[in-house]
């Protein structure tokens, strides 16, 4: 465990030094603050607090931005070190290969966690301190931050899987971009196409299941369906009322999306020549 923590701390320090942490934090904070102020216009219409409206806005932001940041910091983690030769150095120390992957994963996850907690926290704090709303939105906001970290974990793990399976850094970058495009953009469009084409053949339960096959959609449902006010604002009240899965199920889905690719990455790295 100490080796895992040593590697995690090294990764975090490297990310602090090469400005990944500050860049990700400032990006999330800036966009979150902008959305918090600009996106809270419908408050008067739907009679919910400003923080809840901010949750809805930030959920959409997270779905696009967090997977991108997570993939950008993770795709190079293994293949890059192998290419630079430093993986030989790392593996010369008395550490198991799974510990190397686990340590790096924790370090990169810490980058996402710092960016989410600080970036979104500042925006949430600003909205709360502005006194525009009550405390009703605080739990939803806390869940948003926690699930954002979990969403980051899913895509860091997917980035690691790509990084351990390919031989070239450029290939890993391409695969990472492909993962982002498919999961964040194409999947929803394809699902919409299928829904329209099938014309009611797909049941609400099957639709929920299809959404859960994508971590980005599972994250969206977690935040929008889980809170009554948020789902009302986001127009997902219908989904929330029917066959929508519970927050526990959605959290388990997100956790599985983090654990399974990470496990596969550890397995692939164990068999890989360096």
């Amino acid at each position: 465990m100490t080796a895992v923590l040593a590697i995690a701390c090294k990764e975090l320090r490297t990310s602090l030094r090469n400005r990944w942490v500050i860049a990700a934090t400032l990006l999330l904070m800036g966009l979150a603050l902008a959305l918090a102020w600009l996106g809270s216009a419908p408050v008067g219409e739907v009679k919910v607090d400003r923080l809840t409206v901010t949750v809805v806005s930030l959920t959409s932001l997270s779905v696009f931005l967090i997977p991108l940041v997570a993939l950008l910091i993770s795709y190079d983690a293994v293949v890059g070190e192998v290419a630079r030769g430093t993986m030989l150095l790392m593996l010369a120390y008395p550490v198991e290969r799974w510990q190397v992957v686990a340590g790096k994963f924790l370090g990169h996850l810490a980058v996402i966690a710092i960016a989410a907690v600080v970036g979104y926290g500042v925006a949430g704090g600003a909205v709360y301190l502005a006194g525009a709303g009550g405390t009703a939105g605080i739990p939803a906001f806390a869940w948003l931050i926690a699930s954002t970290v979990l969403l980051g974990a899913c895509f860091v793990a997917l980035g690691y899987l790509a990084s351990t399976l390919v031989r070239e850094r450029a290939t890993a970058a391409g695969v990472a971009l492909g993962i982002w495009l498919v999961m964040v953009v194409v999947y929803d469009l394809a699902l919409l196409g299928v829904l329209v084409g099938a014309e009611g053949v797909i049941s609400q339960q099957a639709f929920s299941l299809l959404l859960m096959l994508n971590p980005a959609d599972a994250f969206r449902m977690f935040n929008l369906v889980g809170s009554e006010s948020a789902s009302m604002i986001a127009g997902m009240a219908g989904a929330a009322g029917g066959a929508a899965p519970t927050r526990g199920v959605l959290a388990a889905v997100l956790l599985a999306w983090a654990v399974v690719p990470l496990g596969l990455a550890m397995l692939a790295f164990r068999r890989r020549d360096v």
């Binding site: 490297t14 030094r17 030769g85 430093t86 030989l88 150095l89 010369a92």
Partner: peptide, 15 residues
């Protein structure tokens, strides 16, 4: 029990 220096002495340059 082993110390190893790979060819070209690759190191973490940013450290």
């Amino acid at each position: 029990a082993l110390g190893y220096l790979p060819e070209g002495a690759p190191l973490y340059g940013e450290m």
